[in-house]
Every structure is written in structure tokens, then in C-alpha cells.
Amino acid sequence: MPELSNRKQQLEAFDRLLTIMDELREQCPWDKKQTIESLRHLTIEETFELSDAILENDMDEIKKELGDILLHIVFYAKIGSEKKSFDISTVIDSLCEKLIRRHPHIYSDTIADDEEAVKQNWEKIKLKEKGNTSVLGGVPKSLPALIKAMRIQEKARGVGFDWEEKNQVWEKVEEEMQEFKAEFNVAGDMEIDHEKATGEFGDLLFSLINYARFIEINPEEALEKTNLKFIKRFQYLENAAKDSGKKIEDMTLAEMDVYWEEAKRR
């Protein structure tokens, strides 16, 4: 494990990055062309790459991806300074002030004895700061639906609107499941109202996400881990079929299941 740097070295490294950013912006044709808008989709991509590295628990890759995201932050701040809107100093100062405001149990006389109290204080202060007319006003519209559902539920909990016990939440899951099953009989061939079915299925998913939150499971992370597990098993199936001289598209489901079960045991 490499020796970690001290505060002086950290500040020197950050200063070096700012100097390189200045040089790239002045001399590199690609860097000179970039705008806040052109960087946006690249920043989103870098964020997902960091997410992948975290799920794989690859610390070296996490370090690299954090560097890429830090570059983007410095890049945005450089453009902001050119527009005389903000610079890296005002970005950091604004963050520090926000952290102090939102941790009154550390920097003031507010009492917060546990994590839940901290979260509730955070949401109340955030609501007051932003001047939102709704507790849910701060949830980004462009968030993926699953993550958005999590944030909606967390924010509602922050002001006390939540179930009291996890068994109540599970009862809601079962209720939604029965409603969906009764309304759209899985055993029948009757044509269904897809708009209504979509709404009911959404209710079921929302209740499952709620239950996951109560038992401290991140549903986005859980689903992604299942995605990765499926990919690994399916690719084993593909390779095993190829090694046996078979084309997967020509195999029966029973034949594929043999390899699938092998993949599950690996």
C-alpha cells in the first residue's frame, strides 16, 4: 500500500492540478473548445464509470475515476472563472459554508444523537435554504426512476412522513402484489389494459423500493449486482455452448438450462 500524503502534499498536488488545467485551457485545441454544456455528458459517463469501479470494489480503478471526476470539477470551475461567475475557490468556500450550516450538531448547539436525526435536520435546513414550496422540490427531474423513487421516499421521511414499522411496508408490498395479480391474471390470456397495468406495476415497484429502504438495502445497487450476475452466467452459457460446437440460438431452453445451472454452481 502506498504511503498516504500529508496535508501539505495534498495542497501541492491540488495546486499542480490547477496549473495543468490553466495550461491545457490555454494551449490544447480540444480543451480550449469545451463548454459547460459540452462537458455535461462526459461528466455523467465518468460518474457511471466510478459507480462500476465501486461495485467491483476495485480501489485502484476508484482512484483513477475519482481523478477523472475531479478533473471535471476543476474544468467547470475554470470555465466559470472565465465567465466571471465563479472559480474553484468560491466553489469550495460555498461547499464549506453549506457543510457548516447543515451540521448544526457539530458547529452549533443543535442536538442530533443518531444518523436519523442528522438526516432530518439536513432535509429541513435544505428545504429552508432552497426556498422550495415542496419537500420534494429538490429531487432532480432527470434522475433515473429507481433512484428518484429512493430520494422521494428519503425526503418524505426527513419530515416525518413514513411508515413506522417495516412489517407495515411489507404488508403494502403484498397488497400491491395481490392487486396486480387480481387485475392482470397471469394465468389467463385476456387482453390487458397496458396503461393501467403500467400504473399498478409502478405501485408495486415503489413499495418494494420502500421496503428495501427500511431494511437498509440500496435497491439500485442490488439490481445492478443481479444484472452483473446474470451477465456473467449468460456469458458462461454462451462460451460453454460454443466450446461444445453449438450455436446458442439453435439450442432448446432445456439444453441452455444445463449450462445455466453449471454457471450458478461456479
Results as ranks from 00 to 15, higher is better:
Leu71Gly: 14
His72Gln: 09
Val74Ile: 12
Phe75Asn: 14
Ala77Gln: 07
Ala77Ile: 03
Lys78Asn: 02
Lys78Ser: 09
Ser81Gly: 00
Lys83Gly: 00
Lys83Ser: 07
Phe86Tyr: 15
Asp87Val: 11
Ile88Phe: 13
Ile88Asn: 02
Ser89Trp: 10
Thr90Phe: 03
Val91Thr: 09
Val91Ala: 03
Val91Ser: 06
Ile92His: 11
Ile92Arg: 02
Asp93His: 10
Leu95Gly: 01
Leu95Val: 11
Lys98Met: 08
Arg101His: 04
His103Ala: 13
His103Ser: 14
Pro104Lys: 03
Pro104Gly: 01
Pro104Asp: 02
His105Met: 14
Ser108Tyr: 06
Asp109Leu: 06
Ile111His: 12
Ala112Leu: 05
Asp113Gln: 08
Asp114Gln: 06
Glu115Arg: 02
Glu116Asp: 12
Val118Gln: 09
Lys119Thr: 08
Gln120His: 09
Trp122Asp: 11
Lys124His: 10
Lys124Trp: 01
Lys126Gln: 10
Leu127Trp: 11
Lys128Phe: 08
Glu129Gln: 12
Lys130Met: 14
Asn132Arg: 11
Ser134Leu: 04
Val135Gln: 03
Gly137Met: 05
Val139Asn: 03
Val139Met: 02
Val139Trp: 01
Ser142Asn: 15
Leu143Tyr: 15
Leu143Asn: 14
Leu143Phe: 15
Pro144Arg: 06
Ala145Arg: 15
Ala145Tyr: 15
Leu146Trp: 12
Ile147Lys: 12
Lys148Leu: 12
Met150Leu: 09
Arg151Phe: 10
Ile152Ala: 00
Ala156Arg: 04
Val159Leu: 05
Gly160Tyr: 07
